[in-house]
Simulated scan of single mutants.
Amino acid sequence: MSKILYLHGFASCGEGNKSRVLGAYFGNENLLAPNLPFAPQEAIETLSTQILGEKPSLLVGSSLGGYYATYLAEKFDIPAVLINPSCKPWETLANYVGWQERFCDAERFEFKQVYLHQLERFSSPPQSSRYLVLLQSEDEVLDYRVAKEQYKEYRVIVEYGGNHRFENIHEYLSMIESFMKS
């Protein structure tokens, strides 16, 4: 089986609910789910090195990880599944400049103003790669309609209800598997 590279969201970790569910379904040995650096430039460099070392057959990105996945999908021509992706994180994360805690382990980190500028530099509209976009309309963090519009040329699934965490990802595993094989 081919490798899947999972990219977590802001203030999250590689070891979370979505990565556990993906690992259980596809096999933990087939899932790469690193803890990403807080600085976007470092995150992209880390992920690019990972991809150059062992190119995955699929990227799965959630929230900020969906934003990173779009940039990397375009750069390395890798299909991507985006879960409630952030489309303009330099705007949506502006209120988070300062000290934050990761959700998974309460590690404190500083989210710096310069990171917003770094994020904007990685804006990469979807053009050449393949995307499956999973959205939930009751996302309390991001307006799902922004992603629905940005990825309208691709396969977009909107589930009415839900939340930003997309807690029922297990219901979409066979769809993700079909997308990966197509």
Rank of each mutant, 00 (worst) to 15 (best):
E74G: 08
Q100M: 07
F122H: 08
L72T: 11
S124D: 02
M175E: 15
R102F: 12
S12Y: 02
F38E: 14
A147D: 07
P125K: 11
E159P: 01
L119F: 09
S137V: 03
G27S: 08
K112G: 04
N35G: 00
R145G: 03
S124Y: 05
N30V: 01
H8A: 04
Y68W: 13
S19T: 07
E42Q: 15
T92A: 02
G16P: 08
L142C: 06
D143V: 01
P37R: 03
L173I: 07
Q113T: 13
F109L: 13
L82F: 06
S123R: 11
L52C: 10
H170F: 13
S137M: 07
Q50M: 14
V114Y: 06
F26L: 08
D143K: 14
L72Q: 12
G66Y: 09
G162M: 06
E177Y: 11
M1W: 01
K152Y: 01
K88S: 12
L5M: 10
S137Q: 08
S124I: 00
R121I: 01
F166S: 06
L31G: 02
K148I: 00
K181E: 15
G14Q: 10
V21Y: 04
L82T: 05
R145C: 03
R165W: 04
Y131F: 15
A33I: 00
W90G: 06
S2Q: 12
R145N: 07
E159D: 13
V97E: 12
Y71V: 02
V158M: 03
L64T: 03
I4M: 04
M175F: 00
P125T: 00
L135I: 09
L82C: 09
Y172H: 14
E101C: 05
C104L: 05
V60K: 05
R108A: 13
P34C: 03
Y6N: 08
E140L: 02
F76A: 07
P125V: 00
F111P: 05
Q150Y: 08
E159Q: 14
W99F: 11
Q150C: 07
A11S: 15
L58E: 07
S63M: 09
